[in-house]
């Protein structure tokens, strides 16, 4: 392979792995939006919480990783439940700005709780997945990347199956479609709302743990949640398939743009490129690739 193509493929592979985690977190985001019409600005803080709780259980409590993972899941479910019950339910029917602002408030609170307990230093997970680089035709991939990618795909598949076949999943889709009809068919909409928040918190925690294994974690992990916005806008706010494709696409795009444009803009392009993409999409195709187009005529 020529060096140029090698550089390109390396960027794509890295982007794909990061993108798979974006996709996972975006999945949680879309789930909440679809079921409850809430835009969750605290998605990144769910990622943060999950990563820190898991790290705490593994390092300070000396509990094996598998159990720590399950404990983190349980914690996230409880967190999701509390948030839904205490903050979102009293605000059902309020204007969008109220809902957006309350999730921003939640984000602030969660972030400062994490800082209070764990400080702002970078913390590193003990090695769970082997780190040896694998070489494939000259492309170097650390094994942990493959594990991350595999796990992210696995979780996506599990959720896809959950929505398609399980009773609760079908009820959630019904609620997303039409709340009133769902309610009259005997589905408890309140319960569905609660489940949505639980699942969203849980998948975000998975994302946090996966990404934490690659880079280590500190408070800036919360910004990860903001990258989800370009992903879901690209895919369409209310499409689960869109979230997955959007997540992968944004991961690859930001890596490519960072890799090729950093020299012209003095670094950090990776951080801003997704948002430029976001603005462009909003201008030309505001409902994304798979989103439901809302048509209003005057």
């Amino acid at each position: 392979m020529s060096p140029g193509f090698l550089h390109f493929s390396q960027l794509v592979v890295t982007g794909l792995v990061v993108g798979s985690v974006y996709a996972l977190v975006a999945l949680g985001f879309v789930l909440i939006y679809k079921a409850t019409s809430v835009i969750n600005f605290a998605q990144g803080e769910f990622v943060l919480m999950g990563a820190y709780v898991c790290l705490w259980v593994v390092v300070d409590m000396q509990i094996p990783f598998v159990w720590a993972f399950l404990i983190t899941m349980a914690f996230s479910v409880v967190l999701g439940l509390l948030v839904e019950r205490l903050m979102l339910r009293p605000l059902i029917g309020e204007p969008i700005i109220t809902i957006i602002m309350v999730t921003i408030g939640l984000a602030t609170v969660l972030k400062s709780i994490v800082t209070l307990f764990w400080g702002t230093q970078i913390k590193v997970f003990p090695q769970i997945f082997p780190q040896e680089p694998l070489r494939f035709q000259g492309i170097v991939v650390s094994e942990v990347y493959l594990w991350t990618f595999g796990f992210a795909l696995l979780f996506m598949a599990v959720f896809a199956a959950f929505f398609k076949y399980s009773r609760a999943g079908i009820a959630m889709r019904a609620t997303a479609d039409d709340q009133q009809v769902a309610q009259s068919m005997g589905i408890s909409v309140k319960k569905i709302f609660a489940i949505s928040w639980c699942i969203a918190a849980a998948v975000s925690a998975v994302g946090g743990i996966l990404i934490g294994n690659i880079n280590g974690i500190n408070i800036t992990l919360a910004d990860f949640g903001l990258k989800v916005f370009p992903a879901v806008i690209l895919g369409g706010l209310d499409s689960i398939v869109g979230a997955i494709i959007g997540g992968l696409a944004i991961g690859i795009l930001e890596n490519l743009m960072g890799g090729y444009l950093d020299i012209y803009f003095g670094g950090g392009v990776k951080e801003v490129a997704p948002f430029v993409v976001l603005v462009v999409i909003l201008m030309i195709k505001p409902y994304g690739l798979f989103g439901t187009v809302e048509i209003e005529r005057v």
Partner: peptide, 15 residues
């Protein structure tokens, strides 16, 4: 509408 605009202006903030 509202929520899309919130996201668009958030992008403005970062850019």
């Amino acid at each position: 509408r509202g929520l899309y605009l919130a996201i668009a202006t958030m992008a403005a903030q970062f850019i």
